[in-house]
């Protein structure tokens, strides 16, 4: 199974790029849109790998990438009301675009202040929320004494984030 360490982003991106863009152009999207969707698909792939989701058990990286890209392309076409394929043809992919949440003001603020946090806090929050690592794994990855230390450190980071937003809201 592919993991974060063995994943060569540049190679995967380059090797599958032409094939996917060629496929997307067949649906009369612009090249810019095709590239944008392809990049979203690669982001999804990277996310699955970081979360240690067993993508390579069922399929190869290329197959998964193509499937998620196709799913995202159809999602785009559906949004643009240009979808000409039957919904049953959509690949079976679980992917949350988080589109509704993006419209929420507080989510936008959390995103903004998360990006401005120190590297240390960002790393803990990234591992816990984004990569969905368990506290024991974070202990190993960041060299903490035990999971209680990680837990309290994570709480401090969340508090800091909330304080930044409270200050913003004045």
């Amino acid at each position: 199974m592919i993991n974060n360490k063995s994943f060569d982003l540049e190679r995967v991106y380059t090797e599958n790029r032409e094939k996917f863009i060629g496929f997307a152009l067949g649906y009369s999207v612009s090249k810019e849109t095709a590239i944008d969707i392809y990049q979203d698909a690669v982001v999804a792939l990277m996310e699955q790998i970081k979360k240690n989701k067993p993508i390579a058990v069922k399929s190869s990286v290329a197959t998964y990438l193509f499937a998620i890209g196709k799913y995202m392309l159809f999602h785009y076409l559906k949004k643009e009301k240009r979808l000409t394929v039957e919904i049953e043809d959509l690949p079976e992919i679980e992917w949350d675009f988080m589109e509704a949440a993006q419209k929420e003001e507080q989510v936008g603020l959390l995103q903004l202040y998360y990006e401005k946090m120190g590297e240390h806090c960002k790393k803990i929050l990234q591992l816990f929320y984004y990569e969905e690592k368990k506290l024991e794994e974070i202990v190993q990855l960041l060299g903490y004494e035990n999971k209680d230390v990680v837990k309290s450190q994570k709480s401090r980071c969340i508090k800091q984030l909330k304080t930044l937003i409270a200050e913003h809201n004045g």
Partner: peptide, 28 residues
Amino acid sequence: MDEESKISISIHLAERAAAKKQLQALEA
């Protein structure tokens, strides 16, 4: 949506945006 979910989604969106930026640089 509870606060924990909002934090999780925000971090997801931020990390996805950072990864996308990395890919845009690769594309360039």
